[in-house]
């Protein structure tokens, strides 16, 4: 049986929405980073699927995916470094504790 593009695109969309939902509702910063990672991976799936099913002649989407993976890794590394800094100063990684600066 041939698997249609929609069976890849739908999970990607669900992943993206789950990522957005998690980013907004989760209060633990590591969980927020995981949600961000979900969103970025949904983008990768989208690109790969569009390339494979719609435009198989060129590899533009695949290359974008490769670069996007690298960029996501860089983002996570930097975010983790900053989180460790925060953990050292407040001994916690709950975003509700980061409320020194407000309106």
């Amino acid at each position: 049986m041939e698997i249609k593009a929609i069976f890849y695109l739908l999970p990607a969309l669900v992943m993206f929405c789950a990522g957005v939902y998690g980013f907004i509702t989760r209060r633990n910063m590591i969980a927020m980073l995981i949600s961000l990672e979900l969103m970025l991976n949904a983008v990768d799936i989208n690109f790969a699927v569009f390339n494979r099913f719609l435009f198989p002649g060129a590899l533009e989407g695949m290359f974008f995916t490769l670069f996007a993976i690298a960029i996501a890794a860089a983002e996570t590394a930097l975010a983790i470094a900053i989180l460790i800094n925060i953990f050292r100063s407040v001994k916690n990684i709950d975003v509700r504790d980061l409320n020194e600066m407000k309106f």
């Binding site: 980073l33 975010a79 800094n85 925060i86 020194e100």
Partner: peptide, 12 residues
């Protein structure tokens, strides 16, 4: 630190 966390999360 607080500013950096806010910036990196929104930027990502």
């Amino acid at each position: 630190h607080e500013a950096a966390v806010k910036y990196i999360l929104t930027a990502c």
